[in-house]
Design a binder for these strands. Structure first.
Lengths: 214, 214
DNA sequence: GTCTATAGCTTGATAGAC
DNA sequence: GTCTATCAAGCTATAGAC
């Protein structure tokens, strides 16, 4: 039943796990191929340069993720018609697939999100790689929020999106800081707990800029 | 007038700037000493190992920062007595010194905060270094919030703090992503704009978990 | 597709002269 | 405190045999 994994995937799996912990520069090709139990020369044969391995890691899961998120957004817009979709459902559509994969997707997904968290907060790469993979989707979500808050100002909404992005990616980072800070009351890996709190928190934040309601 | 900087500070300045852009592993000791225009051997003479340079960079600005923040918190608590301090003032006390230094503190401070953003989202270091330097202060702020929202649940507050931390540090990261996403409507470096929006956003988020108000 | 072998660098760290 | 010189190790990347 278990089919032997292709070399390419073995390399990507190993690279994903190592990049998540030590970042791009903290990992060597030899460490990757060693963890993948594959010859070092095969990395450049299959991918080319080290940067190409990293981009392949990024790309592999981005597509499936964004497809799910757009699907959820479209669903909640359709359900609400002819009214605009409720704010909390929009936020949930934005975050649900991510939190869910991060919780139940296995180690590969967890590593992937840890990389995303680092990239998003990286001064050079955040504006390039994150934009490349996620801006088209971000624009769709902001448009949906605009439909819900027609009198709001663009600048407010973009900044709110920015805060959402920061809160969300820190959650992915896999830091156990909140466990220590709360003396065990909270656990970083308890993504159900985040699930229940992130959406109301962010929704309330956006609503603070709804001119119609205030 | 201009006093010649000591070698130690030259090294720290250069290291700070380089670590901010490329992370710990992405920077070599030779790159640091070269930028500092100082002999490579002096790095280990003054600091020891590479990790010691990094920790010296972290430590240098943490103390002055936390002193300012605690001062502001104590002030707003004293002003409100005998009532609990208002939520928005507590959040402002938590963020004001950081945003202000990041805006007007010069390049060194900007680099420092970019490092903080990366560390906070780093799976290994976030739970160690951030806790070490900032958890005592975080606990004071959460206690102040608890005084304002006495019926709230601890678990809710810790998670809200976590979201605050993520939103705040992403702002420091210096990514220009929001500039691109908003097609120029917002600019990452316009920290006045953040100043006006972060506090109401986060305050509203916390209030969503205030049992007394809902 | 896989592996051996290796070229050509750069790295962290230090010993020892001044 | 500063600098020269250097070591051993690790690095990316590839050429060429199988």
């Amino acid at each position: 039943m278990t089919i032997k994994k292709k070399t390419k995937d073995l390399i990507l799996d190993a690279a994903e796990e190592l990049f998540a912990i030590r970042g791009f520069y903290g990992v060597s090709i030899r460490q990757i191929t060693s963890k993948a139990e594959v010859d070092p020369a095969l990395a450049s044969y299959h991918f080319g340069k080290k940067k190409d391995i990293f981009e392949a890691v990024m790309l592999r899961r981005a597509e499936v993720l964004n497809r799910e998120r757009i699907q959820m957004l479209d669903d909640c817009i359709r359900r609400a018609k002819p009214n605009p979709a409720p704010l909390n459902e929009i936020i949930d559509a934005f975050t649900h697939a991510l939190l869910n994969r991060s919780l139940k997707g296995g180690d590969g997904w967890r590593s992937y999100f840890a990389i995303i968290a680092q990239i998003n907060n990286h001064p050079e790469l955040g504006g390039v790689i994150m934009s490349q993979y996620f801006d088209p989707l971000a624009k769709k979500f902001i448009a949906a929020i605009q439909a819900n808050m027609p009198d709001s100002q663009d600048e407010d909404l973009f900044w709110c999106y920015h805060f959402l992005s920061g809160a969300l990616t820190l959650t992915f980072s896999g830091t156990e800081r909140i466990s220590k800070l709360s003396a065990g009351v909270c656990s970083s890996s308890d993504l159900d707990a985040v699930h229940e709190r992130l959406v109301p928190f962010i929704t309330a934040g956006f609503k603070a800029f709804d001119k119609q309601r205030n």
